[in-house]
Design a binder for these strands. Structure first.
Lengths: 346, 346
DNA sequence: TCCCGGGAGTAGAGCGCTCTCCCGGGACGG
DNA sequence: CCGTCCCGGGAGAGCGCTCTACTCCCGGGA
């Protein structure tokens, strides 16, 4: 096949200097005569030299790689057609996370390693991967707030940053959204639209984010005289949103406003409402959450609470970078503010 | 911080054997007394040893990593809100690719590095990444068939496998679909449903896959007496599908069947049809392509030509693995058959 | 004239692993 | 009984890089 790749040694010989001098030029260390720099650079170009990263990593103890870990429930079993990874990306949310992370990493010539962790074995593998020094740290996005991975990472003293605050305290940095404020924005908007019988499709209640969104929504309505608010729990999927909407309609046929805890469920709700002959927003106003791509794809387009996922993901990467470089040692939290995006559904 | 990680040496001392013996146990090489194996394994557990991959990679010249590269147009400029990566994952297609790739890699304890290549610099970086030995090969998914990356990879003799046949021949393996057969299936189904004035929303015509789907559709209709078939070109996005549908309706108001070259465009078409008061499938039957998640999300659910993306992606990974291991040296092609999935839209 | 400081470059010791080569000893055949 | 083979295990040479010494040389001050 192709012969051995050129090494520092080869370049040094070609340029007539020592290995160390070439290394200095490659790594941009000063104390090298500009003329010699030029000679070396030409030699590098001529030989087509690319520094071997394994060798560099061996001595610097840095992989210059981060792991992007998506943790899941591991409840459903995989088939070739329907893998965990595919299910994850069915929610446009993760695409945005990847986009944000890459947005931060790419200018630094870094690239994430994608890992999916459903089972205990998978989680162990993530730990091993980091311990082997194949990645310098992990960005962790969990479907459930009580995922055991964060605690494992913290125990192993491996650098990691979480998306969303874990349900039980863990000494790791995290990036989150002020979910309660998001719920408040939704409530205020429905009230401003003159809705008098609002209801909500909340997310899984074992997820703190769902609880907070619900709490913010309820509290705000309570402050305006709505002591009781109908609630149906969904699972952040289209189908669960549709089911929850059916449930709400059956119990409270006269409702005129719905806040769904994410856009996918809002879309499901819209479909059910339309099937039952309710016009959106005239008969029932619908507010979503996330401002994901389905908010625009959906008909009518969704009024929704925007979560700046890309910025949040980028912040995650930035904080991890600080941890890895040792510029930050204590865990921090970065909390972003939600924003109401008004479209057609409310 | 944490003290030095344990090395082979440490384990060897702990177990009272030599470094080489521990290495043998770790790598599962035979010729080691079972009793000693046990001693070593216990020592590994006690020390919490994890082999340093950089060191191993240095000598084996294997990174045990593959790059998953997504090539894009690089036409639109990125904003923090709307990155290339986010745009890529807006199409559920890529989620399925990732799912398929991971499905193959995970049982082998491998994990893909995600790379996005829009600009010439990005492509150069992919090459450098591979040349540095950070990944053993690349799985390339291009938005456009004339992307220059495959040729660059082939020239550099770097192991790579493509998703879809490139528009100009390149000595690389690829995995593809019998797109022409897919177009045929769509045409046959519309005919079977008694449609007499079929039209099509094709994909970008610089993409061979689009051409083939269109050709298969047209040829089959021609064989049944339809000499002329109205065509509007789309860009595989929801909006472009909607625009193409409007266009077709304006030109051929009496059409009663539409074949869209992917599900996203089919969804856009359905929305426009509904807005114009046409019932789907009663007035206009719609057939999509891909069988992606939107096929099920869409109302009505889409009848569509299934592309087994997960299996195709897994096959890509499998072929790359053979190339990397040296089990295969000549480029091959693996072509999958499409399958009609009948739901509600036609 | 000598010495000393510092910039430019070299020599070489590892980083942690794999793998070839070698050695000792037990089984076996002549 | 000795030579041969094989098998379990050890010693040690790298893999390609970084980085800490150290050397060399030149200029300036005493």
């Amino acid at each position: 096949m192709s012969r051995r790749a050129p090494t520092l040694e080869d370049v040094a010989r070609e340029a007539g200097v020592s290995r160390a001098t070439v290394s200095r030029v490659v790594n941009g260390v000063r104390n090298v005569d500009p003329q010699i720099q030029d000679v070396v650079r030409r030699a590098i170009a001529r030989t087509g030299y690319a520094p071997n990263r394994a060798a560099r990593a061996l001595v610097t103890r840095r992989a210059e790689t981060v792991a992007l870990v998506v943790c899941g429930a591991g409840d459903a079993s995989d088939t070739p057609q329907d893998t965990f990874a595919a299910r994850v990306f069915a929610d446009p949310f993760f695409g945005r996370v990847v986009g944000g992370v890459v947005g931060f990493l790419r200018p630094r010539s870094l690239h994430p390693v994608l890992m999916f962790a459903e089972t205990a074995d998978d989680r162990e593998e993530v730990l091993t991967y980091l311990r082997q020094g194949r990645a310098d740290g992990a960005l962790v996005v969990s479907a459930h707030a009580d995922d055991p991975l964060p605690a494992l990472l913290a125990d192993a003293r491996l650098p990691a940053v979480l998306f969303a605050r874990p349900s039980r305290p863990v000494p790791l940095s995290y990036v989150d959204l002020a979910h309660r404020d998001g719920g408040r924005l939704a409530a205020q908007h429905l009230l401003a639209r003159g809705r008098t019988r609002p209801a909500t499709i909340c997310g899984p209640l074992d997820v703190p984010a769902s609880q907070e969104r619900l709490a913010g929504f309820r509290d705000t309505l309570a402050r305006h005289g709505h002591a009781f608010v109908p609630v149906a729990e969904g699972g952040f999927t289209l189908d669960s949103g549709a089911a929850a909407m059916s449930d709400l309609l059956a119990r409270y046929p006269d409702l005129d406003g719905v806040f769904a805890a994410n856009d996918l469920m809002a879309q499901g709700a819209c479909q059910v409402l339309r099937d039952r002959g309710r016009r959106v927003p005239e008969d029932v106003a619908v507010v979503g959450f996330d401002d994901s791509s389905v908010a625009v794809t959906c008909r009518p387009q969704l009024t929704t609470v925007r979560q700046p996922v890309e910025e949040m993901a980028a912040a995650m990467a930035a904080v991890l970078d600080e941890h890895v470089r040792g510029a930050r040692t204590e865990p921090t939290s970065v909390v972003f503010d939600p924003e109401l995006v008004i479209r057609d559904s409310a």
